[in-house]
Write a protein that binds this DNA or RNA. Structure first.
Lengths: 353, 353
DNA sequence: CACCGCTTTGCACACGTGTGCACCATCGTG
DNA sequence: CACGATGGTGCACACGTGTGCAAAGCGGTG
């Protein structure tokens, strides 16, 4: 009488499982599982034999099954606004290094600052049961934050310093307000009084903080901010905008006023400003000083090289990932704020006479 | 007599499962599963009731369990050499857009051209049972390729055009050899005869192809290549090298020879060359023409703006991802090769008299 | 009324791994 | 020899989902 011969998994050429090893070794799958984990419940000779057999059969544990059983995926979801942004690139590198060192895999998602996409991404992370989320999006909308806190998913934000009550969510950041002050103080110390600001409209939270630092520093020095000195790139329907193009388009609008220096939201805006100056025959820094923000690689390579506020991007990423790991281990973690540094290069100088 | 009350999963605040919904609706979990998939096996009113209940209870399917059961993770592993590389950034963007549109998640890994890390990454992908792999590493070592083909994991390479037999592995690429010819032909047409080459040592395969294009084009024009014209950055122990620094360090070595133009392995090397020229007081392009490769964003922003060979980076990524999707659906796919285009900007001109 | 066919549901297993508990063999000791 | 202690192994279940098959309910027809 025929034993109902089991499917004989060799058909679909599946990867070997502990069950396969168990049959080959003449033991149960439990024994194999324990042996592979070096459990001292298993007799040393059996343990060794199973391990060698697993090696020979090319066994590779199925992380999916382990995740299901262990309720831990060892996966972290990563949301960024844009891949093209060199700022994000450095931050991701820091995150990735710490993650890899701790055998954590990263699920990469790009939001393009699109609210609908942000919600989709969160749901995907929920479906995949990531252990936690790191969000390095420039923009944080209400629905996004609300959803994230509501579902109680361990989350660390990068550069999302909250204004007031939202300190419920953890974050690592470099102080935008203080950074902006550094930049403007530098220009003031060079003798500039009439200083412009070129901002962005689609990242209004960090833009607002940097703008506030700009305003307060000027006011503190007894300079009344002139509305003519401030220009902000409009929010396009197209969420994929180009900061350099925006900076280039924005700068000429300042010429009507009499600014001798301009502080830009970030380095890309500043690069656009530099290009506009070149086109208009304005010599930097002799006729106009330009300051950027972030200190991305490109700031060193343009001509003149860009004076800018250096953000510790790598460190931000590393700290965020480490904080998330601590959080997952149940340790107490506290928000961290890093200091920015002013980097003086060739795009700033004394104002023209 | 007490029914051995089941664990009552409400304790550990796990996400709701179809089992929870089943109990709440008074049906079996099978019915719930089918209802949520809109199976017409389930009576319409039951189907609707279950769906509404799932909605209300905030059910989010467990992709881990689905992957285990369905033997498909809807996940693709992505290997790149470096996050900092702006070339990789654009390619990843193309990949990510197609992936997101097809509800595929990306597992990001950075290899830093470290052989050991590359093998670790592959094993991680195997453990996690990714459906396929896209490899955009600049460097492809034997062990890496061998391992990848050996385990028969669906894989698409980017810019890894094989020399001879290795056409077993699928790839999408833009022809390095032809691109280099474009660049050198441009310089020849401007009147240059003595043309240098600045290369890299740690990406020898693409470097070799571009160098071959350089050599053949010169030879074809009757110019004998002079060994003094060629410099290649040494391979450092530190796998995190900086192309700009290398280019900057390499250019002065060419001054002993009498080159009037230099073709660089990529834009970053070229930017380094531009910076070296500035330091040495060499005016570009009047005294020296410089050509880059890749056409990354920065090429437009440096001064003078860089003449370069444009690679369709976004398209490379999109095609690679689409090819992998087709492959996973069992469709026949064929290797694709895209054309590069020369972009003439301000860093090239006629040779000095 | 008996039988057939259709619709709707549940049972049971599978995916691959980890682990509490029971069981068995062996050994030591009174 | 009997009994308890100890060490090694397997059974059975759990994780959450999907699905083939059986079964139940029900209406129609000869």
């Amino acid at each position: 009488m025929g034993i109902p011969d089991r499917p004989k998994r060799t058909s679909a050429r599946r990867p070997v499982s502990i069950q396969d090893i168990a049959e080959a070794a003449g033991v149960s799958h439990s024994t194999v599982s324990r042996a592979l984990h070096n459990s001292d419940l298993i007799r040393p000779e059996v343990r060794l034999r199973v391990q060698q057999l697993a090696q020979k059969m090319g066994y590779i544990p199925n992380a999916v099954a382990q995740s299901l059983k262990g309720q831990r995926t060892h996966t972290v979801g990563l949301v960024i606004s844009s891949i093209a942004d060199p700022f994000a690139g450095r931050v991701v590198r820091g995150i990735e290094e710490i993650a890899q060192a701790n055998r954590i895999s990263l699920l990469l998602s790009v939001s393009y600052n699109d609210p609908e996409r942000e919600l989709e991404i969160i749901e995907t992370f929920q479906r995949r049961r990531v252990d936690g989320v790191i969000s390095a999006t420039a923009q944080m909308r209400g629905a996004y934050v609300q959803r994230l806190t509501q579902i109680k998913m361990p989350t660390v934000m990068i550069n999302q310093q909250a204004d007031s009550e939202a300190d419920r969510l953890l974050s690592v950041d470099a102080d935008d307000y203080a950074g902006a002050r550094l930049a403007v103080e530098h220009l003031l110390s060079l003798g500039h009084r009439r200083i412009g600001y070129l901002g962005v409209g689609n990242r209004w939270q960090s833009n607002r903080r940097r703008f506030a630092g700009y305003c307060d520093t000027l006011s503190g020095a007894g300079v009344a901010v002139n509305a003519q000195w401030v220009r902000v790139a409009p929010i396009l329907n197209n969420p994929r905008s180009d900061d350099v193009v925006d900076g280039q388009a924005l700068l000429p609008a300042l010429l009507g006023s009499d600014v001798t220096a301009v502080f830009c939201y970030n380095d890309l805006i500043a690069v656009g400003a530099l290009m506009a100056c070149r086109e208009l025959g304005i010599v930097v820094p002799e006729q106009m000083s330009v300051v950027g923000y972030d200190d991305v690689d490109i700031a060193r390579y343009v001509t003149p090289s860009l004076t800018t506020v250096h953000q510790p991007k790598l460190r931000l990423g590393e700290l965020a990932m480490q904080m998330l790991l601590d959080l997952l281990e149940g340790q107490a973690v506290h928000n961290t704020s890093l200091a920015n540094e002013l980097v003086v290069r060739a795009s700033t100088g004394p104002p023209p006479l």
